[in-house]
Design a protein around this nucleic acid. Structure first.
Length: 490
RNA sequence: CGGGAUGUGGCGCAGUUGGCUAGCGCGCUUCGUUCGGGACGAAGAGGCCGGAGGUUCAAGUCCUCUCAUCCCGACCA
């Protein structure tokens, strides 16, 4: 009696929502637009965090923490920055509640109005640069390479678990440099760090490149990004790294004396990825049976399910199961042995499939007799009996295999959904079908916006790697020297 | 902020032109049989129908107001 589960084909959004719930990753909070990340979802995030954190440290960065609240005046110093975020800010106006005598309810105390309102950070450039001003006086103080793991709030109109919520978790790196070149290099280095993580750990292929002026971060000179393609043909921005020029240094008056005793403004970068990556992970690999996690990120890499009739038979099975568990753990594999007698094997099989556990081992009397285990892989849903001897080596190999296979499948899918468009009609058709569309563009923001209005497609990225090619803009017919990537996006 | 819906046990829903003691499925509790792909039976627990006011002999059902949530747009990591 399988419960109905919406398929990807039927309704991709509904499939996504049900999956997030059934895999026990997260749920909608009763607080408007907010998300409760459940232990399993958080374990996944922690794993992602720890891998990225190690990479940040390897590239010379340190973690720090800055305030949640930003005085309104800070926020408004960088003109473009404020206009980019003003529409979605949560604002603190009071600092006290009181009991209203007449209605006996709690009300905001009108006496406790703040002199200056505080903005709940939508991003921390301003509050961080306010500190950097005091930290930086000499070229010897540079570079400053700092990362912060934090939550931010963007008051979105419409929300979706992991992809867009009013509050979300992320990391934001904020660096300060003596020269333009150094800052650009840093921004590019970090987009490569992200690409490496997303491709080699999350098993999601990405396209690295730069955003157009229109899609750029508010206050940046250049925004580098990695763009991924989801199963339904919509693009998802998986990470961004911004070269901020001297914009924030000028707004916050951060100057230093160089070797020649000249006063100069500091060059800046910022870069971030969020829990949105979990959304990308779900939409890249999962199927109608639930979540599919790449082994390198799965909180549980292997689950062992015992099969038995009478409870008295369990100890014999457990003995073998625990021995295998120990062998696997010795190889650094995380294993869960689920001997909970409350649920039956079939129930457990489905449970761990929903949760995306890459490998499942089932051990029963039959196996004990034959000295085998049933090994099932989540990506292909195939099962085979393997000898218990050497099981740890075989499972380790299998995990690698699954990791590579997931990337390969995702890459194939992306290639199948990537097309060139040479006429406007062709372009519209391809956009409607979904996927990446490579087309010529005349380089103007007006054209980009016109295309967006007509087709809802945006220029996702101008890839770093491209073949120069003469052509005509898909909309205006004006000359173009390269193709750019269009898609509808999340 | 425009357009459209919905609020009924934990979750998903039904409840007719107002009518008696508000139902169903899932889940939950207890017992028994089960256990190699979501088991079955039996017996239970759990509700002032989002809130306020009104119409009426009688309101989950009709009216007014209000609150909340969801969907479609505009905005966005």
């Amino acid at each position: 009696m399988a419960k109905d589960f919406t398929t990807r084909e039927e309704n991709y959004s509904q499939w996504y929502n049900e999956l997030v719930k059934k895999a026990d990753l997260a749920e909608q909070s009763s607080v408007r637009g907010c998300m409760v990340i459940k232990p399993y979802g958080y374990a996944l995030w922690e794993k992602m965090k720890s891998i990225m954190d190690t990479k940040f440290k390897e590239t010379g960065h340190s973690n720090a923490y800055f305030p949640l609240f930003i005085p309104k005046s800070f926020f408004s110093r960088e003109a473009e920055h404020v206009s980019g975020f003003a529409k979605e800010c949560a604002v603190v106006t009071h600092y006290r509640l009181k009991v209203d005598e007449s209605s006996n309810s709690i009300v905001v105390d009108p006496e406790a109005k703040l002199e200056e309102e505080l903005i709940v950070r939508p991003t921390s450039e301003t509050i961080i640069w306010d500190s950097y001003r005091n930290w930086i006086h000499s070229y010897r103080d540079l570079p400053i390479l700092i990362n912060q793991w934090a939550n931010v709030v963007r008051w979105e109109m419409r929300t979706r678990l992991f992809l867009r919520t009013a509050e979300f978790l992320w990391q934001e790196g904020h660096t300060a440099h003596a020269t333009r070149e150094e800052a650009v290099e840093e921004a590019q280095k970090m987009i490569n760090v992200y690409a490496d993580f997303v491709e080699n750990y999350m098993a999601i292929p990405v396209i690295k490149g730069v955003k157009t002026a229109n899609e750029r971060f508010a206050g940046a000179i250049d925004t580098y990004c990695i763009e991924a393609l989801m199963q339904d043909g919509k693009a998802l921005q998986a990470g961004t790294s911004h070269f901020l020029g001297q914009n924030f240094a000028k707004s916050f008056d951060v100057q230093f004396l160089d070797k020649d005793n000249n006063l100069q403004y500091v060059w800046a970068t910022s870069w971030g990825v969020s829990t949105r990556l979990i959304g990308a992970l779900i939409m890249s690999h999962s199927d109608d049976n639930g979540l599919v996690l790449p082994p390198k990120l799965a909180p549980i890499q292997v689950v062992i399910v015992p099969i038995y009739n009478k409870l008295e038979q369990l100890p014999a099975v457990s003995e073998v199961a625990l021995k295998i568990k120990k062998e696997l753990e010795a190889k650094g594999i995380s294993v869960k042995y689920d001997d909970d007698d409350n649920n039956r094997p079939g129930w457990k099989f489905h449970e761990y499939e929903f949760k995306g556990v890459p490998v499942r081992l089932a051990i029963g009397p039959r196996d004990i007799q034959n000295n085998t285990v049933e090994v099932a892989r989540r990506d292909t849903l195939s099962k085979e009996a393997m000898p218990i001897d050497g099981i740890a080596d075989n499972v380790a190999k299998l995990l690698d295999n699954i990791q590579n296979n997931l990337f390969k499948l995702a890459l194939e899918r992306r290639e199948q959904m990537t097309h060139e468009a040479n006429t406007w009609e062709e372009f519209c058709e391809l956009i409607e079908k979904g996927g990446f569309v490579l087309a010529h563009w005349d380089g103007t923001t007006e054209t980009e916006i016109a295309i967006k209005e007509k087709t809802k497609a945006t220029i996702r990225v101008l890839p770093f790697e491209y073949t120069p090619e003469e052509g005509k803009c898909i909309l205006t017919g004006r000359p173009s020297h390269r193709r750019v990537i269009f898609a509808r996006a999340y």
